[in-house]
Simulated scan of single mutants.
Amino acid sequence: MARYGMALDYKNCINCKACEVACKEENGVLLGADKHRIWVGVNEIEGVWPNLSISSSSFLPSQCQQCDNAPCEEVCPTHATYYDENGVVRVDSDKCILCSYCMNACPYDARYVDDRTVTVDKCTFCSDTRLARGLTTTACQNTCPTKVRTFGDLDDPESEISILLKTRDHFSLKANLGTEPKLFYLT
């Protein structure tokens, strides 16, 4: 089995939203829905009105961080949140009672209520769609025109993501919390 992660070369992000649209299409989420599964945040706007600008490093793609030590999994009273065989944090909608403990425990604000199933949902690295069909990329990586995202097996030393993480400096969001996220931001 693999242990999946994603590296984000976030300085290449142009905020085109192609990743968000591809994710929503792949997972049947309404296109107008805000901040579901994945999103691109804007960090800062520089200058003084009316001379404002957004630098390319101001866009920060985000999603579930797929923590190895996930607070959302620890607090789930019904074990609806679980790790699958590839270490991906998933939600079993049949067990979810919508208590929102996981939503409150997630320090990345990566969970939301799916109106279709009336359960909590989140990014699954396309494990129940693309990976289940034998594909090796996520919808968001596959569609990104500037190649921001690199998805792969962290345990395979020859995988593209492993090589990137060995050769490029990177950081994880809120690493001080001990969640051990598997999203890595390349610097």
Rank of each mutant, 00 (worst) to 15 (best):
A18K: 05
C140A: 09
G41F: 05
L164W: 06
D128Y: 08
C123M: 04
V88I: 15
L98K: 12
C72R: 07
L164D: 08
D94K: 14
V29T: 13
M6K: 04
P71V: 09
T167K: 13
G134E: 06
L30W: 12
I14P: 00
Y185D: 10
P71K: 03
S100A: 07
E73W: 03
D153M: 13
S100P: 01
K35H: 12
E74C: 09
K35Q: 14
L165G: 08
A110Y: 10
K95W: 06
C19P: 12
L164E: 10
L60A: 07
R116W: 11
V75T: 10
C126T: 06
C13T: 08
C19K: 12
R149F: 15
V40E: 05
E180T: 08
F184Y: 15
H170A: 07
L98E: 12
D9S: 08
V118P: 01
Y83N: 02
N51C: 01
T129R: 05
L177W: 03
P71Q: 05
E25D: 14
L154Y: 03
T146C: 00
D84I: 02
A105Y: 13
C126Y: 08
Y112D: 10
N15M: 13
Q66M: 15
T124I: 14
S62Q: 02
K17A: 15
L164G: 05
A22K: 06
E46P: 00
E73V: 15
S162N: 05
C76F: 07
R133V: 03
C96L: 09
F151D: 11
C140V: 11
F59S: 09
S53L: 12
N51V: 10
S57V: 02
A105Q: 13
Y10N: 00
A18Q: 06
T136C: 03
D94G: 13
L131H: 10
N15Q: 08
E44G: 09
T129I: 05
T187M: 09
W49R: 02
D114S: 13
R111G: 00
D109H: 14
F171C: 07
C16Y: 12
R149T: 05
D155W: 10
T138I: 01
V120F: 07
H170S: 09
R149N: 12
Y112E: 11
C72M: 11
G87M: 04
W39F: 05
C140R: 09
T129W: 01
N69E: 04
A105F: 12
G32V: 04
V75M: 07
S55C: 08
P145M: 12
E26R: 06
C144A: 02
V88C: 09
I45W: 04
S55K: 15
T129Y: 01
M103Q: 14
T179K: 04
D94W: 03
Y185S: 06
S127Y: 01
K166C: 02
K35M: 13
A175K: 11
G41H: 12
V48G: 01
P157W: 09
